[in-house]
Design a protein around this nucleic acid. Structure first.
Lengths: 209, 209
DNA sequence: AAACTCGGTGAACAAGTGTTGTCCGAATTC
DNA sequence: GAATTCGGACAACACTTGTTCACCGAGTTT
């Protein structure tokens, strides 16, 4: 067993993921600015020095986590726009997808929500960029809809940003709900749907004023 | 000079404020979970041990800061509802007040935005309670308006929560703007006004559906 | 099979941490 | 005026922190 390349690389990526997983676990109860290098390696079950084989600093680990987390987010958007239908149907489906994805990727969403206004500038900015790209994508979708006919580009952007902020708020509310509590979860979902309905109404009458 | 009581108490409160001020200054670049006790006392110019004469822990300092910060927030709400007028006038005025207050109390708003989803549970919950009270107050105001005639109580709550979330988002956006940049500030304000207008439109047609 | 790469270890470093106890001196009370 | 309260300084405590170093051994290349 010597001439099969990739074993080393695979092992390396594996422990890299282990570090990120350990960090994500620890970040459930604290911010990135309070996360220690030794703490992470201890949680991951290795020596502190090993950390440097993968990341030059905890901050860089944070950047990698941002990238990973936005992977989940984009998958979510794709799932949402899979099929177009009536307004109410879209609202129902959007909220449902949000609830499911937040449930499946709790740690990622918590990380994004926390570091969005968190203490580490570089990471905060990376999160901002990610959300902006996300909003760009959504804005393009919205602009293509017939409901947006006659809308100024800036207004479409405004709407997209509003939706993103709403989704973040909904996700944050879901994170405060204990993992199993379906009732409380449904309450948050219901509020989200009513919010979206209100905004859809405003959207329908936007050009009247 | 011996029988004039209050000199000690005044000095105590003064250094207590000094500690809170120092903490607020340090929290500009980090989260509460990463704030050290020694760091704070150093910034405030006193010995570490002195800290315990005022707070049992950094967490408790955080709780005090939450209270202080919400003082600014309620003053802001009061200023907003001082006079009622047409929808557009209310929107214009609300955003103006928000911009001014965020400008005047940058550190407080930054602290609230950061710790709202921050790492310290107790503080995070205190912030949540504060925002809920804030939202209660706003909901009562909204319910008293003629535009809310026929509205379900839950829907008024939803609207109030939405306004609060929007204000928080606007404040957060303002905090990302460099303190002097009036142009960028106006851009954020304009977006906020358009958001509010959209929601007002939705509100006007809420009972139709 | 020999040479090399490289992810991981364990030890050591200086520097920082929260917390406690003792003591001082000014403000307060008697 | 004497006795007491109490906010603050100083020093020490046992740890934890980030970072560097030489070193090992399995994976990889020649």
């Amino acid at each position: 067993m010597g001439h099969t390349p990739g074993v080393r690389q695979a092992r390396k990526e594996q422990t890299r993921r282990a570090l990120m997983g350990a960090a994500l676990r620890l970040l459930e109860h604290q911010g990135l600015s309070g996360l220690g290098l030794r703490e992470v390696t201890r949680e991951a079950g290795m020596s502190p020095a090993a950390f440097y084989r993968h990341f030059p600093s905890v901050e860089e680990l944070g950047a990698a986590l941002v990238e990973e987390a936005f992977g989940s987010l984009h998958a979510m958007l794709r799932a949402t726009r899979a099929e177009q239908a009536g307004t109410d149907e879209v609202i129902r489906r959007s909220v449902e997808v949000t609830v499911r994805y937040v449930g499946l990727h709790r740690a990622h969403f918590r990380f994004l929500a926390r570091e969005r206004y968190g203490g580490v500038r570089a990471v905060r900015e990376a999160v901002a960029v990610g959300f902006r790209l996300f909003s760009d994508e959504l804005a393009a979708d919205l602009a293509a809809q017939p409901e947006s006919a006659g809308w100024a580009e800036a207004d479409v952007r405004m709407l997209a940003d509003l939706f993103v902020d709403l989704m973040v708020a909904t996700a944050a509310a879901l994170l405060e709900v204990p993992p199993g509590d379906r009732a409380a979860e449904e309450l948050v979902a219901d509020t989200a749907r009513r919010r979206l309905r209100l905004i859809s109404l405003g959207r329908r009458h936007w050009l009247e004023a």
